[in-house]
Design a protein around this nucleic acid. Sequence first.
DNA 1: GACAATAGTGTAAACGATTACATTACTATT
DNA 2: AATAGTAATGTAATCGTTTACACTATTGTC
Lengths: 330, 330
Amino acid sequence: MTSIKDVAKAAGVSTATVSRVLANKPPIRPETRERVMAAIAELNYRPNLVARSLRAQKSAKIGLVVSDIRNPFFTAIGRAVEDAAYEKGYSVLMCNTDENPEKEMLYLNLLHDENVAGIIFSPTNQFCTQAADFHFDIPTVLIDRSMQNKEADMVLLDNVSAAYELTEHLLANGYRKIAGLFGDASTTGPERSQGFKNALKANGLSPFSVEFVSPRIRSGFSAASALLQGADCPDAIFTSNSMLTAGAFQAIREFKMNIPGEIALVGFDVTEWGEFVDPPITVIAQPTEEIGRTAVELLFQRLSNPNRSARTVILKGNLLKRGSSAVRAK
Amino acid sequence: MTSIKDVAKAAGVSTATVSRVLANKPPIRPETRERVMAAIAELNYRPNLVARSLRAQKSAKIGLVVSDIRNPFFTAIGRAVEDAAYEKGYSVLMCNTDENPEKEMLYLNLLHDENVAGIIFSPTNQFCTQAADFHFDIPTVLIDRSMQNKEADMVLLDNVSAAYELTEHLLANGYRKIAGLFGDASTTGPERSQGFKNALKANGLSPFSVEFVSPRIRSGFSAASALLQGADCPDAIFTSNSMLTAGAFQAIREFKMNIPGEIALVGFDVTEWGEFVDPPITVIAQPTEEIGRTAVELLFQRLSNPNRSARTVILKGNLLKRGSSAVRAK
DNA sequence: GACAATAGTGTAAACGATTACATTACTATT
DNA sequence: AATAGTAATGTAATCGTTTACACTATTGTC
């Protein structure tokens, strides 16, 4: 491998000069710069980022720690983060935790050992309680899920409002017996359930049911199935994330029930399937692109100013009214 | 930051000894090992992977270079690769190229500079021709798409057979005027078109049409729309990847045509939406988990044995017969 | 022409690990 | 008791950069 020494020798200068040329750090005689550039081109030299990283005590890498990149929300986030990072010359290490606090811990440590410049992290509830005293010695931006009592930058959705709006939409369209299905792994479930309950209360109603389950398709399926086979059946199901929405959808189909005639279905997050099924599913769309980019943005702001106070950016969800919650037939 | 020196001092030994304890390299007196371990725990020491990487001239990282992680096929691959890598203590750098040869080049160089141990790469056609002389100085496994004249490990699908089988299925179910829509960015399009044409020929038929377009939903939509609004309309559309399938599906819906009554639709790759729509879409399912794991497997085999000859693993697709290609009504 | 200031470059010490080689401390053999 | 052989550890070079500091060459000022 050709190193900076080879370039220095070829150009007849010292490694320091080569380094300065690369970093564009004056003073350098134009003539010298040319000679060095020529040598670099000649030898096809590319600086070793590992060495640079060791010397600089940080690398141009960002860790992305989420539960599962296959969750469409995180897929979109992942892509947005990678794009934003790419533009700044940073690359992204992908970490899937499966909502498992141990894997979360393991990955955070790994990223530390890799000397990443920063971390974008979506923690589980368990992590928040178990690792309440965890010290983020690396700049970290939390996304999607908040962490109490932590001085950390965050990019969140206004979950309470979004859930409120989504619930009001159901009410406006005539639904009254609304069952709520919420994820139990993160802070979003409880927050969204709060907006859900608030909206019902404000309208003098109470939830048909409120349930917290693991944020997986299977759990959504089981919970929805249980609801649908009861003697008393809800007229709408409110889900707090797309895994549960998918599970509920499958259950409804299994029961051969008509959406929205017999039961309405609403949820969070844009998915391809939610747009393609008939009727399409009403959801709160999260601005994934913006979340990802903002997270990277906050990270870089903190990198350039390590001791500014933590900032929380709260974004609004966008209610996409679609067929799955159309006005109820009388 | 606490380094190996601090540990050495605390344990009253040299850094070499600490290193040996960490690497579990005899001979070490059990008593010494204990003292070192105690110091490590005491100081909460964690080895610096960057330094280790510089010294070892390679890092425990794998680069994953694909067109877009949002493509469900690559999402699944990405997750499988990450899982397999994780089990071996490796982490994954995610690179999205958008089928852009320049980004491909850029990322390959970046991964080189990062001293990654290996690369898992799904190249575009353009890359294959433009960079025909590109030398992979880092162990690389090609997935999904082959590259001619390259001594490289590959994990591919038997595209010709899969397309053949899928086409035969359409024929068996009574479809005769089958239009083919193929991606033009990679080798999979041409290969799948080959199987498509072979199957038709073997049955004394010829394609209704064969078209190569950019593998995007929009292109699939345009191409399918053009087909549907023609005076002579196909009775089935064969698509070579899930982006095109999605575009064609939207076009069919736009034209308010009945699947499969008026037109059948088949494609490649498992997607959530394809399962959820009614009728669900018939596809060739690729064993994404196996592809990802095999790729990592091959990578490690090559790492431990750098000059064995290149190996190509060809996997079979799995035809999922579903409603979108049900037996044609007379 | 002496001196200061600045521009341009080189020298060498880091960064934190690994490891070839040197060294010391034992144990066994004669 | 001397010697050889091995076990256990230490010393110091190395990986490829960056950068504080030292140094020389050039220019300007009086």
